[in-house]
Design a protein around this nucleic acid. Sequence first.
DNA 1: CCTGATTCTGCGGTTATTTGCAGGTTAATG
DNA 2: CATTAACCTGCAAATAACCGCAGAATCAGG
Lengths: 267, 267
Amino acid sequence: MSERPFPTPGPNGVLPARRRSELLELARNHSQVTVADLASKFGVSPDTIRRDLDVLAGQGLLERTHGGAVPAGLVNQDSPLDQRIVAHKPAKQRIARAAADLIRDGETLMINGGSTTLAFARELAGCHDLTIVTNNLQVPAAVPRGAVRDLYVLGGQYRFESQVTIGAVGFATVPSISTDTAVIGVGAITADGLSTTLLIEAEMMRAMIGSARRTIVLADASKFGHSSFAEIVSLKHVEVLVTDEPPPEDVGEALAEAQVELVLAPS
Amino acid sequence: MSERPFPTPGPNGVLPARRRSELLELARNHSQVTVADLASKFGVSPDTIRRDLDVLAGQGLLERTHGGAVPAGLVNQDSPLDQRIVAHKPAKQRIARAAADLIRDGETLMINGGSTTLAFARELAGCHDLTIVTNNLQVPAAVPRGAVRDLYVLGGQYRFESQVTIGAVGFATVPSISTDTAVIGVGAITADGLSTTLLIEAEMMRAMIGSARRTIVLADASKFGHSSFAEIVSLKHVEVLVTDEPPPEDVGEALAEAQVELVLAPS
DNA sequence: CCTGATTCTGCGGTTATTTGCAGGTTAATG
DNA sequence: CATTAACCTGCAAATAACCGCAGAATCAGG
């Protein structure tokens, strides 16, 4: 009672924003933070810390875990592609397989960057006479030789992290192409729509989706809920979503309202 | 009551997520981990370690074994190009190394397809602030990250055999670019000039050479003498030739007459 | 200056997750 | 073939998380 007889909602001398900022730095320096430690360190209740952590996790800056949080990079968010490829590999492969079943011989496909779409490219062995356009430099080597008639690579500036090209050349080319299907791997899906971490990649995806008659989105269950910085399009631009687990309720409703066909990859 | 009379579920100071992350790194560094070692190292029960291993195995990051785990097998695919790389690796690597020594910081490079130019890209580690333009889809992943400022990929139709792009988009782009140096790997060199097997690739090389102030040709000794179907340019368009063995007499004379600087890669 | 709305905070009760342990089963080893 | 270690399943305990609620401070506008 001497100090705080009642809740004391207001800042204890430290503003919430600043507390969160320091909290994030602590997490990065120590590779982890625990709720209990932070609560005693900042002199606030564990619930407050939990809420802070949730906010930061929602921005993709932290990965929430039981008892605390770890920096986003530690688990797998924006790690180099090589690591992302192996992460959630079984799920991605099931999704890729199910998506490949949606492709008919002779179609023209647009494929964007990402590890899931790369897995998709590998699963195209059963198809024939495909025409493929991609900005993912891994796709050409991954796609089975016998499945394609022609394969075109979009030029532009190379991005080391994601191993895709992005740039004026690609933007100029995409609108002049009309494809049957765009196969898009995204970073995050919410009821509001698709999003990713990079504005310029979002722009590229938007161009691809716009030039395709049908858009198939590939996303494993870990993509649901979080929303990333750069919005791509709303769900009504999507015809099919292939995933491995049923989405959360709010996303599921939004998908139904947008008349998105939901394909669950069989295990 | 000494320390822990009963289970103690809560984090022992290390969050599960972080423990798994460190565990994964240990597995990768040591190529294997055992349940018992990890249990004592992290101060948790073997059962907990087993559960961690199962989680990581479920994400495809580890391969579970009796008594421990090993890192997930890395992908290895054998394309024709990859095989060619090992075929003449010592010679190609020496040539690549010698050619890389000719590049100065801040230069703008044009790099075409071929296994020798790919080796060249790998040897650029000592350079900085390079701007690179290429139609070789292997180059972007091969070039050391720290050596380049910008890297552009030429778009176009993909050729499976050589893993390069060729096409209207690339042709349209190349003339609008002016580079310091074109680094060209060729199929054959005679006294008459450079040649290769495919007309369309010859055309691309010609465009590249034309837009560069300096042309460096990479060719191992096996390329001398034979002439291929598609002529590229005569020797007088070449500034430097990097090879591993002195050329035959007639080629040597032609090189001298065309004032081509001959660089022999040291063994 | 005062009042209503918003935000931040802590609290109590319920649910979920993590962890270690006991015991039966399976796999590796001599 | 026997023996030891590792594995898996169910289980209990302790903590963490979640949900709704109410008090307190800040803010907006008259």
